[in-house]
Design a protein around this nucleic acid. Structure first.
Length: 127
RNA sequence: UUAACAGACUAUUCCAUCGCUUCGUAUUAUUCGGGGAGGAAAGUCGGGACAGCACAGAGCACCUUACUUCCUAGCGGGAAGGGUUCGUUUUAAACGGAUACAGCAAGUGCCACAGAAAAUAACUACCCUUGUCUUUGGCAGGGGAAAAGGUGAAAAUGUGAGGUAAGAGCUCACACUGUGUAAUGGUAACAUUGCAGAGGGGUAAACCUUAGGGGCUGCAAGAUCAAAUAUACCGGCAAUUUCUGUGAAAACAGAAUAAGGGCUGCUCGCCUGAUGCCGGAGGGUAGAUUGCUAAAGUUGCAUGGCGACAUGUAAUGUAGAUAAAUGAUGGAAGGCCAAUUAAUUGGUUUACAGAAUCCCGCUUAUUGGUCUGUUUUUUUU
RNA sequence: UGUCCGAUGGUGUAAUGGUAGCACUGCAGAUUUUGAUUCUGCCUGUCCAGGUUCGAGCCCUGGUCGGACAA
């Protein structure tokens, strides 16, 4: 499969975001806080992702952009872990939000290692 | 030549792989090709473009600007000059820096503490005179004058002479300040000189006065399309209790009513019931499209101007996202740092910082390099 | 993106341009056999820089930080 991350794979609906944060379940893997929710909706895209970095922890817009780009790049390379399982079940759509709550910037390899952990954990919990 | 400060300019380049966004072509979900952050994109301080609303004209109120001339679409921006002030050299001025720099001589207010008094005056002390007493003087009354009082950030312009009972710009001379006026130079601010009359403490980043400017709100402005849900309104169909009138009847018109049905045969109580269905239509939510990127544009040259800048001409066509793209990995060249060493090795590739309608300014932040100016260290002449 | 407000001891909150005050907290002492209460005293402050003024918490300019509103 192709390692892409187009706009359709990102969560951008205001109503769905409100539903995710009010009814979704969450867990922590440092430095991330993950919230997920499965909804009844038929679509070609099985997973929609939301990335957020708090302005409270990083007041500089350059640093916020850098963290978000690193998370996006990591997810793009490893998202097949999640997609394969989700496709098997193929019931509705999974909404996932990844919030960065660390106080300092981690490297790309460290971030990718943590995200792999997160995706495996998501597979277990969602099953 | 060392260091510091201030100002100006610049803001590493290339290749490969995997992606993001946008435009175009072919064609229907992909291929190919092109574009894709800054000098401050920041702060949101000033001004505009653009848009909606308001609006006859003028005034009040409110906000804002304030030496002169010029530049600019405009500005609280810029250029050149004038005044004031500070510093250096030096005593003639020059050079450099700063400057919210209209008006307290229109009115009102304020000036802590100290001081008689913070500006009208009063008080102490001074002088003349009358009365009285314990008579080189004290006390009381009347008059004069506002110079002396040494505190303060600031004390009624300073010095000298005359004048007087004592004194006082009361008068005079010189000086100072600022006002009016005239001449000369300058576009002007202003400068120099003369004459007249004057002496007014400070404070307008105190109220205020004078002169100029400002309608209000901001792209989350505004425009177009428009699911779902609810529905004022309209039409069609169906349902609908009682009374009255017209009429032979069907029906029509008007008025009133929560009747009516079920649990249950009655009362109480409870449930249902104050129309239903379909269609239209309106405003408009989610959302989509537009506004939206060609512009008071950028670069080069020439001419004019002290300069800001203007004019002409040639070239160029330069991001447009929307829970928000412009990235990641690897390599090479160049720069910088360190070590050995004199051409290798290792590290790093950075500072400040990320477009959100657009433009012109201002302010603030800042690594390395280059240039200019001032001060400074060392060396040579 | 735009509009607006604020900053005073450790905390909350006053102050016409003229010695920065009050309450709670903390520390020391007194009272008490000891502690609490009470009394006395002390420590700790105007967000930063510049300007106006004889003199700024206050007035003006720039910055920093925090907050509110417009969906």
């Amino acid at each position: 499969m192709r390692y892409t991350l187009k706009k359709e794979e990102r969560l951008n609906s205001k109503l769905l975001i409100a539903e995710l944060f009010s009814e979704g379940k969450s867990f922590f893997i440092h430095p991330f806080r993950v919230t997920y929710l499965r909804i009844d909706r038929k679509d070609d895209i099985p997973v929609q992702l939301l990335i957020s970095v708090s302005k409270r922890n990083f007041s500089s817009a350059v640093k916020r952009n850098k963290i978000k780009r690193l998370i996006r790049e990591s997810y793009r390379n490893i998202k097949h872990i999640l997609w394969n399982d989700v496709n098997k079940k193929s019931e509705g759509q999974l909404l996932v939000s990844v919030v960065y709550i660390g106080k300092s910037i981690v490297t790309y390899t460290e971030m990718e290692r943590k995200l792999i952990l997160i995706l495996h954990r998501l597979n277990e919990k969602d099953a």
